[in-house]
Amino acid sequence: MPLLAVRDLAVSISRLRPLDGISFDLDKGEILGVVGESGSGKSLTAMAIMGLLPLIGGRVTGGTLHFDGIDLAGLGENEYRRLRGRRIALITQNPMTSLDPILRVGEQIDQVSRMHLGFSDSQAKKHSIELMQQLRVPEAATVHGQYPHQLSGGMKQRIVIAMALAADPELIIADEPTTALDVTIQAQIIQIMVDLVRDRGLALILITHDMSVVAQACDRVVVLYAGRVAESNRVGPIFASPRHPYTRDLIGCISRPGQVRGSLKGIRGNVPGVLDYPPGCRFNPRCDLAQMVCAEKPPEMEVDGASMVACHFSEGAR
């Protein structure tokens, strides 16, 4: 049984349905990349798993979410509180919004293990400093007593990761965790997260718009487009032979060393907003393989082992 099983998830916000038919599995020790442009539904998927949809007036209106056999959609807020932060943790893009500016960073990590694991003050502090050392925070004991504004962006993001790890969760959802960081720091944070998954048998959902981060870190990928799954597969085949034109185009947006100038293609147009989802395949107005049928009929999801694709011409994208 997978640790997390999402089946046909649909999310509604008032009368709109921004997310529809989302399915994927995640095992322990595995990194799942959730990719797509802004507005494709990546963060909504994360909020649905975390039970945070009520914050934005949304709710799950279809499908199921099972975490370690627990039906997440059926949980009340009190039960969710025992999971959130304890067994499922979230790391957000901007560490500044996750940290309280007037509390010492060490105290913020300590709180997590005191609350969820019942640690004493001294146990919690020892635990936090060990975590910070594992995350390669230099002079961890000193940094433990500092305030967020005294730390660099990369160091703050390590503190946020330490907070996420403090209650020893099984699943971590990282929503664009390195987008705001410098490239050398991004590379180190990604490496730290990969090592954590391998060493501790964690499961990680890495939400990103960057296919090169997926290629570097992930085992499997779900490509979202306009609130639906376009394609999902193991990372090897999805890069070697993408079956959905959107996947192929997303990969084609990143330059490779030695690539001839002028050969980098973007994707024309923009992701439609939820009010403007076109009929048929939602990608059809931007797709260079689109035919009449694509604008008329939504493609069925073809499932073949680990590979899932929703495209009328899934062979043509190769």
Binding site: A187, A215, Q216
Partner: peptide, 19 residues
């Protein structure tokens, strides 16, 4: 630190010490 869109070319990220 610059990743490539190709999982067969994964980088070995050396630990740049310090900030």
């Amino acid at each position: 630190s610059t990743f490539e869109p190709d999982p067969t070319l994964r980088r070995v990220v050396t630990k740049l010490s310090g900030e």
